[in-house]
Design a binder for these strands. Structure first.
Lengths: 125, 125
DNA sequence: CAGTATCCTGCTTGATACTG
DNA sequence: CAGTATCAAGCAGGATACTG
């Protein structure tokens, strides 16, 4: 320890930039989890993602599709049907995500408590 | 599979909201990794986080401190010195972060390739 | 050295209305 | 049903200048 930090440590091209906190947008993680147990339709995804608008959901899905994490399949039956599912690459991130979510579950309260105890001084209002 | 999705799946209070993608801000993950091997001074942190301004670094550090992930210690010696270090809670997230970063290292290229291959049609320019 | 104060911009998110 | 188009708001991030 105490060795100097590598200035190139977080070079723009370093995969670390894909750190756990910033792989995708606000909804990316939740969408992936929604697809964990099989493909889902556009309108099915809007149910658990309450509040998401069609536009934003489309944007997020396109981004995930572009990154090779999900697939989009259209079935033009009597009524239009579009299904989204995980690619192998998409499935491969479920493990790491579960690890992070487990951490969150386990330490969620600690984090909230720390927040309430902060700042140590000055609690007007 | 094919069971309906739970509408409450991503209730606001659900710890899943702390999904791997959105625990902190843009710099949070990188800061934590910078502190992995021991405490660092404010100015030391600015080296690897090239481009970060003092304001944004301060904001990120305060947020991490408020969440109980890092500590802030001031030494008022001849010259002012402030050191940031990980709390036990902060250290506990290193594991999950490493898992996610390993995933990124391993699949970084797949992701880039998928991006270049997209969209399948229309590649003017 | 370790910040704070101010101003500013772009991106993400969203509301609303419309379409194949 | 599964989107697209348009407009608008908010906030994170950053540039710059100043301070204990």
């Amino acid at each position: 320890m105490r060795q100097p930090l590598d200035p190139d440590m977080f070079d723009e091209l370093c995969p670390s930039a894909l750190s756990p906190f910033r792989v995708g947008d606000k909804w990316a993680g939740m969408i992936i989890r929604c697809l964990e147990h099989g493909p889902r339709r556009f309108s099915e995804l809007r149910v658990p993602l309450r509040g998401i608008t069609a536009k934003v959901l489309t944007q997020s899905l396109r981004a995930l599709e572009r990154d090779g994490l999900i697939t989009r399949t259209t079935h033009d039956e009597p009524v239009r049907r579009v299904e989204y599912g995980l690619t192998p690459l998409g499935r491969s991130i479920l493990g790491p995500m579960a690890v992070m979510c487990d951490w969150a579950q386990e330490h969620w309260e600690e984090l909230l408590e720390a927040r309430e105890a902060f700042p140590p001084l000055g609690h007007a209002g």
